[in-house]
């Protein structure tokens, strides 16, 4: 299927359109960017950006475990470890009195430490590079198929539960008075954020992924009022800035994830001017 699409893609009158790696990278970006943008609108308004950062860092441990267990793809290690973290955090948050940010800090740093110890034990520290910086230009068609399947599950699920997540974040008691089990949805949101992060981390990189989650939502917040506009702007900005960043990184030979984040930060600063003007 990708082959046929690629032959269409090569008809574009650009140099980069002749390369299959660019074609696969653009497809991957088109799947990942809106996903991160949507989840970003939920995470920034639920004080969960610290959690998403922690899950990103935990990918190092996932990678190490996959290396240790000699899994064929490291993705499974990353996905499973991220889910484990979501579950542990949810349970500790519910059944202990420790403050959430302290909990997340402990879990994140423990994970990074464990990951580094395991990687150095298996002499696999050189694999850190791929996960820290991401390598979307090396994505293969099998990886892309996996990404497509994840997207097919995640998009409908998130869209169906989107308003419930808002309700639960605004007031658990309000949700309860409407007969909704807020604890369940809180957990589902954690699990979804963890899944979104873990399927995109190998391509975007631990160091900048969280920015791709926060920035489109923050930009949208500067220019839109109401959930609908907030979400729409966030998706549009996510897509445009990510494809733009990918093309910049092609022309300048820079790391893709970081270039996207720089571009998004510039857009954020421009919209911030508008925000400041309105306040005055």
């Amino acid at each position: 299927m990708f082959e046929q699409l690629f032959s269409l893609f090569t008809l574009l009158p650009f140099e980069w359109a002749q390369f299959q790696f660019m074609f696969l990278a653009i497809l991957a970006i088109l799947l990942i960017a809106p996903l991160l943008a949507i989840v970003g609108t939920l995470a920034t308004d639920n004080q969960m950006t610290f959690f998403s950062d922690a899950v990103g860092h935990a990918a190092i441990t996932g990678l190490a475990i996959a290396t240790l267990a000699e899994l064929e793809t490291s993705l499974w290690g990353i996905v499973l470890y991220a889910q484990l973290i979501a579950l542990v955090l949810f349970l500790l948050k519910r059944f202990s009195n420790i403050k959430t940010d302290a909990l997340i800090g402990i879990i994140a740093n423990f994970s990074v430490a464990l990951g580094i110890v395991l990687l150095s034990y298996t002499s696999g520290l050189n694999r850190l590079n791929t996960i820290l910086f991401g390598s979307i230009l090396s994505i293969g068609s099998e990886d892309l198929t996996f990404l497509c399947i994840s997207a097919l599950v995640l998009y409908p699920l998130i869209i169906f539960l989107y308003k419930v997540f808002w309700l639960v974040s605004v007031s658990p008691t309000l949700a309860k008075s409407r007969g909704l089990n807020f604890a369940l949805f809180e957990y589902v949101l954690l699990a979804i954020i963890a899944l979104v992060i873990s399927v995109s981390i190998l391509w975007i990189g631990v160091l900048v992924l969280n920015a791709m989650l926060i920035l489109p939502a923050s930009i949208a917040k500067n220019i839109g009022v109401g959930i609908k506009k907030y979400l729409t702007y966030s998706i549009i900005i996510g897509i445009i800035s990510s494809v733009g960043g990918l093309l910049f990184s092609y022309y300048f030979g820079t790391s893709t994830g970081a270039t996207i984040v720089l571009l998004q930060t510039i857009i954020f600063m421009l919209t911030l001017l508008k925000n400041i003007k309105i306040k005055q």
Binding site: L161, K163, V164, L167, L174, V225, G226, I227, K229, Y230
Partner: peptide, 23 residues
């Protein structure tokens, strides 16, 4: 009071939408 962040884009009609029609 609800924990409404001062920068939250949530409007009054959004609040009704998420409560009356969450699914």
């Amino acid at each position: 009071k609800l924990a409404i962040d001062p920068t939250s884009p949530l409007t009054v009609s959004d609040l009704f939408a998420i409560t009356m029609a969450p699914f």
